[in-house]
């Protein structure tokens, strides 16, 4: 044991800090008088509780959870506290899983997207993700984009939840993951984190173009006028009061990323035609051709948002037919000239 001394030292430090609550109590007492009881309080701090010793105080960032708004929204403790006992999730679900929790790990309990239906008379538990996914599926204002894009599992998609205040100390993390951090401290951390949260300042409809003329492929039909601003305005209006959207659309460009997908978030994203070509590239057989990319994006979003108009097969609603006499000439020149300043292909 070459590191034995260091380990012992660290363990000793951890023990001392756990067994010596004088400093913590002194810091916490003021807050306890402000907020009555942890159980009745607005916020929770959910730590990655583990059986394993965590001397370095490392691990997944704990989550500051606004219990209050979720209770109001769900109106039912059983959605989350599925066995009917209102105890903390981490008392049964730990990072390794425990017998009490059927060995369902904390990660699974929080993130499982598809949860098997439980037999009649038993509540089917919900995870954070599965409940939110239901919301995005069932609400038309969400379903448009969310039928096309699935939130990626990237660092930026973890951050909206896993973002404990930087004032959290290594000792607090150690105690938290051991499940021994006093409630008052948890509360202080959670409330500090949640109060520090600021809604993202989205790009405004005015930041994007007013109208976009899509004419790169125009052949049988004339160029298509896409009312970019009207579309962005309409979506932003619908989401104005949506708390879930505000919490999770964390970047200024998040809303843009449904249509302007794949490429990094940007106020000036690349054109569709940068990747989607008029015919499928044999090197990228999975990438749709440009015409289909437009149609799939428009139609699937309209379908998801339950926009009845236009009918999929009514071409002339979006595309003005070209005059017949100029058909041959135009089809020859298609793909080159841009009719307006904002031309996309």
């Amino acid at each position: 044991m070459r590191n034995g001394k260091t380990l012992l030292l660290l363990a000793a430090v951890a023990l001392i800090s756990a067994a010596c609550p004088t400093i913590d109590v002194a810091a916490g007492e003021a807050q306890v008088s402000e907020i009555e009881d942890y159980k009745d309080s607005r916020y929770r701090a959910i730590f990655p509780v583990s059986e394993k010793p965590n001397p370095a105080g490392v691990g997944m960032q704990p989550t500051a959870f606004n219990h209050f708004v979720h209770v109001k929204k769900a109106g039912n403790c059983m959605s989350c506290h599925h066995n009917g006992i209102t105890v903390a999730c981490t008392s049964c679900h730990t990072m390794e899983g425990k017998d009490e929790g059927g060995f369902v790990t904390l990660t699974a309990a929080m993130h499982k997207r598809h949860i098997a239906q439980r037999p009649e008379g038993t509540a089917t538990p919900q995870s954070c993700i599965s409940c939110h996914a239901q919301q995005t599926k069932s609400k038309p204002e969400c379903a448009g984009c969310h039928s096309i894009v699935k939130p990626a599992r990237s660092a930026s998609s973890c951050a909206p939840c896993h973002n404990m205040t930087p004032s959290m100390t290594t000792e607090q993390m150690q105690q938290g993951s051991a499940g021994t951090l006093p409630d008052v401290e948890k509360l202080a951390l959670a409330s500090a984190t949640i109060k520090a949260r600021e809604p993202a300042r989205y790009l405004t409809p005015e930041d994007g173009p007013y109208k976009v003329y899509i004419d790169g492929l125009s052949d049988k039909f004339g160029s298509n006028m896409y009312a970019h601003r009207r579309h962005v305005e309409s979506v932003m209006e619908k989401l104005a009061d949506n708390k879930l959207a505000q919490a999770f659309h964390a970047n200024p460009e998040t809303l843009c990323a449904t249509c302007h997908h794949i490429s990094p978030l940007s106020a000036t994203p690349p054109k569709c035609g940068s990747c989607h070509k008029a015919t499928i590239d044999p090197e990228q057989p999975g990438r749709t051709n440009l015409k289909a990319a437009y149609h799939l994006m428009c139609m699937n979003c309209h379908k998801g948002m339950q926009v009845a108009r236009p009918v999929d097969t009514s071409c002339a609603t979006c595309h003005k037919p070209r005059a017949t006499q100029s058909l041959t000439m135009d089809s020859q020149s298609s793909g080159q000239g841009s009719i307006t300043p904002q031309s996309v292909n």
Binding site: I280, P285, T288, N289, K291, A292, H295, L296
Partner: peptide, 10 residues
């Protein structure tokens, strides 16, 4: 096909 419902390839 305007929808790429028919994808040609190997």
């Amino acid at each position: 096909c305007p929808m790429d419902a028919l994808t040609f390839g190997r």
